[in-house]
Computed example of a mutant assay.
Amino acid sequence: MVTYLSLAAGLLLLLFCGDLLVRGAVALATRLGIPSMVIGLTIVAFGTSAPELVVSIHAALKGVSGIAIGNVVGSNIANVLLVLGLPAIIYPIICDQPAIRRNTVIMLGSSALFTFLCWHGELHFWQGALLFLLLILFLAYSAHYAATCPEAVSGEVDELIEEGALPAGSGRITVYLLAGIIGLPLGAHLCVTSATEIARTFGVSEAAIGLSVIAIGTSLPELATTVAAALRKQADVAVGNVIGSNIFNILGIMGITAMVKSIPVPPNFLFFDLWVMMIAAVLILPFALARTTITRSAGAVFLIGYMSYLYFLFLADQAASGM
Rank of each mutant, 00 (worst) to 15 (best):
M1G: 15
M1F: 10
V2E: 15
A9P: 05
L11Q: 04
L12Q: 04
L12R: 11
L15A: 09
D19T: 09
L21I: 03
V22W: 02
A25I: 11
A27M: 01
A27P: 11
A29K: 03
T30A: 15
R31F: 15
L32G: 00
G33D: 10
G33Q: 11
P35M: 15
P35H: 03
S36G: 00
M37E: 12
L41H: 03
T42P: 11
F46M: 08
G47V: 07
S49A: 13
A50Y: 03
P51M: 00
P51E: 00
S56I: 02
S56A: 09
I57T: 10
K62I: 00
V64K: 05
G66V: 01
G70H: 11
N71E: 00
V73I: 03
A78N: 05
L82A: 10
L82M: 12
G85S: 07
L86S: 02
P87M: 14
C95T: 11
C95E: 06
Q97K: 14
I100T: 08
R101I: 13
V105G: 09
I106D: 01
I106Q: 08
L108K: 04
L108M: 09
G109N: 07
S111G: 10
T115H: 11
C118N: 03
G128M: 09
G128S: 05
G128D: 06
G128L: 01
F132E: 01
L134S: 01
L135C: 09
L137Y: 13
A140V: 12
A140P: 08
A140I: 13
S142H: 12
A143T: 06
Y145C: 02
T148M: 13
P150M: 06
E151P: 06
G155V: 07
V157D: 02
V157Q: 10
E163Q: 15
A168P: 09
R172D: 10
I173S: 13
L178T: 10
I181T: 11
P185W: 03
P185G: 01
G187N: 02
G187V: 02
G187W: 01
C191G: 00
T193L: 06
A199I: 05
T201R: 00
F202N: 06
V204K: 08
E206K: 07
A207V: 07
G210C: 02
I216S: 11
G217R: 05
G217D: 06
A224R: 02
T225C: 08
L231I: 08
Q234G: 02
Q234C: 07
Q234S: 11
A235N: 04
V237D: 00
V239D: 04
N241F: 02
N241A: 12
V242H: 07
V242G: 10
I243T: 12
F248A: 15
I250R: 03
I253F: 01
I256L: 12
T257I: 05
M259C: 04
V260L: 01
K261C: 07
S262V: 10
F272G: 13
I279V: 15
V282P: 04
V282D: 01
L283V: 04
L285E: 04
L285R: 14
F287V: 10
A288Q: 07
L289T: 09
A290Q: 15
R291H: 14
T292C: 11
A300G: 07
Y306F: 12
M307V: 15
L310K: 13
Y311P: 13
F312T: 12
F312H: 10
L313W: 06
A319E: 14
